[in-house]
Amino acid sequence: MRVSLFVPCFVDQLTPKVGLATAKVLKRLGHEVEFRSAQTCCGQPSFNSGQWDVAREAAIRALEVFRGAEVVVGPSGSCVAMMRQFYPELLKGTPHAAEADDLAARTFEFSEFLVKKLGVTDVGAKFAKKVTYHDGCHALRELRLKEEPRQLLRAVKGLELIETEEGETCCGFGGLFSAKFPMISTAMVQVKGGALARTGADFVVSSDPSCLLQIGGWLSREGKPILPLHIAEVLANDA
């Protein structure tokens, strides 16, 4: 299959290793991977801020960028939810509505793509560490993914998966929310991060790099010994 990578803008700039790991896993499974460099941001910050006119422009650009792609795969539940759930809502009743629906049907979150579309759970990864999994809210509630990432992690050789308290509780990121209401966002990450730290895991793994930014940022500031890691980085590890 020819997979077109959808790399979130902040992954592109701040955690490129997540994008590279995603590509590595897909290639290892024998798929062709492309990156269309005209892509930038999906428009979610503007969408969530109520600036739907701006977000609509971003959506239309994304339709152009990914036009003709066989499948689009992104290592972020949140950005994929934007494309899959919210582009159709944004572009409803416009000349772009049909294409938005079409793109939505071809777009997958990374773990979802592996498990649901390809039917793969064992990608041949090794990772002899104790990890706990954080469900990003968009993956969990917009895309309804819960078991898929866990199936992938359980198949990783040497990996011990432990569940956390507050498992379905939001980390408090919410994009610009975390900066517009920093006190609430911090209280939320105290709850979530505190629970994750108490698991005694070496890593907190998630399919959402934005949650990892928030959780990792707080854990680092608090000097907690648990580190953030994207699921693609775990699955890319084969040594």
């Binding site: 790399v7 592109d12 994008g19 990156f35 680092s220 500031r221």
Partner: peptide, 13 residues
């Protein structure tokens, strides 16, 4: 209340 990750020298692209 939070740290940003250390910026990489090269972007993904």
């Amino acid at each position: 209340t939070r740290d940003l990750p250390k910026a990489p020298s090269q972007s993904f692209r």
